[in-house]
């Protein structure tokens, strides 16, 4: 090859970089026209929850190849934390009167829940998974199932096995009318928060030193430590962030659906995990994308009248898709490890 005419394969692939947003926009437009605005917003909101939870699954899998079955229950615990924090805020103010109080309340409920969940996630990593870092892969997997049960049992014991209302911080009747359609502020708010968090995560992973350490550690742990990356610390930060995002998803779930019980983590967790696999496990953009796709399929099934079959539809499509593309939408084609 002559010097100067060397063609290089860049790290960013221009084809997919352009094609993907176009496909996504086309998909969204088609869904919008088909299901109508209300269901469309509903799907986006549900997608935001799945996507935020899916990110935790995919980040943890990417860095330690563990399917963290307890992650859905971390999300479940977050819905209960939201319930208590919202309740506490509302009790003190006897309701929220003005915009400043509302903003402050929302900031508090997100900040408190995200922080508590991040800490719980890091504690789980430290005491349940780190001791098994060098054990065969089945051991941490079983531990994860154990942690999942423990979290469910703790909530059952502390709160009880029923479905509880999450006090509504956000006035549900606030909306603007766009022509004939009612657009609730709650949906707009929740979607904006979720998308901003995902954008922040992408920035963090691609730009910051710690983010780069997370990427190299998931590509090759030994090589990463030879660069001076503190592996234990990096893995713990991954759990902190993943669980914090599940915390945000829990707040959104609480604000939007207004109720929770100790089993919400199972259903939503399974679907979020599916979203992570669909997007290509280990890939954060894929997990976010997968979360929204699963939500649209689920809401689409409702629109078509098989609401009872939502789960069956989601999983059938997943199986069919994986037959044709086992690495998921954005997954790497080959393993990173030799």
């Amino acid at each position: 090859m002559a010097a100067g005419t060397v063609s290089t394969v860049r790290t960013e692939k221009p084809r997919s970089a352009l094609a993907l947003p176009v496909i996504i926009l086309a998909f969204l437009a088609a869904m919008f026209v088909w299901m109508g605005f209300t269901q469309f917003l509903n799907a986006l909101t549900l997608g935001a929850v799945y996507a935020l939870v899916a990110l935790g699954y995919t980040m943890v899998y990417g860095i330690i190849e563990l399917i963290n079955f307890a992650h859905g229950d971390v999300f479940m615990v977050a819905t209960f934390v939201t319930m208590f924090v919202s309740g506490t805020i509302l009790n003190q103010k006897e309701g929220i009167y003005g915009i400043p109080q509302l903003i402050l309340s929302l900031v508090i409920v997100f900040a408190v829940t995200i922080s508590i969940m991040a800490i719980i996630g890091a504690v789980i990593e430290r005491f349940a998974y780190r001791p098994l870092r060098r054990a065969p892969k089945l051991a941490p997997l079983i531990t994860a199932i154990g942690v999942s049960f423990i979290l469910q049992n703790i909530i059952q014991y502390l709160v009880g096995p029923y479905t509880y209302n999450v006090p509504q911080l956000f006035p549900v009747d606030w909306a603007v009318m766009v022509g004939e359609t009612r657009v609730p502020f709650l949906n707009i708010f929740v979607i904006t928060v979720a998308v901003s968090l995902m954008a922040l995560l992408q920035l963090f992973i691609s730009r910051t030193r710690t983010g780069k350490a997370m990427r190299t550690t998931s590509m090759d742990r030994d090589a990463s430590s030879l660069m001076g990356v503190n592996i234990d610390r990096t893995i713990m930060i991954t759990f902190l962030i993943g669980s914090g995002l599940a915390g945000a998803a829990g707040v959104i779930h609480g604000l939007y659906y207004g109720n929770t019980n100790f089993q919400v983590g199972f259903q939503s967790g399974l679907k979020a995990f599916t979203a992570a696999v669909l997007g290509g496990i280990g890939n954060t953009a894929g997990a976010a994308l997968g979360g929204f796709i699963i939500a649209f399929v689920e809401v689409g099934a409702v629109v078509l009248g098989f609401s009872r079959w939502g789960g069956a539809v989601v999983f059938s499509l997943l199986v069919i898709f994986l037959v044709f593309r086992p690495t998921g939408l954005l997954g790497s084609h080959t393993g990173d490890r030799a």
Partner: peptide, 29 residues
């Protein structure tokens, strides 16, 4: 590494999905 030992391991172990420049940046982590 901080104390002053660098190791170019068997089998190269470069970070495949990062650019040459990013790999070198990681060396200066």
């Amino acid at each position: 590494v901080r104390l002053g030992i660098s190791h170019a391991p068997e089998g190269r172990r470069v970070f495949a999905r990062m650019s040459v420049r990013e790999n070198l940046e990681m060396g200066a982590f």
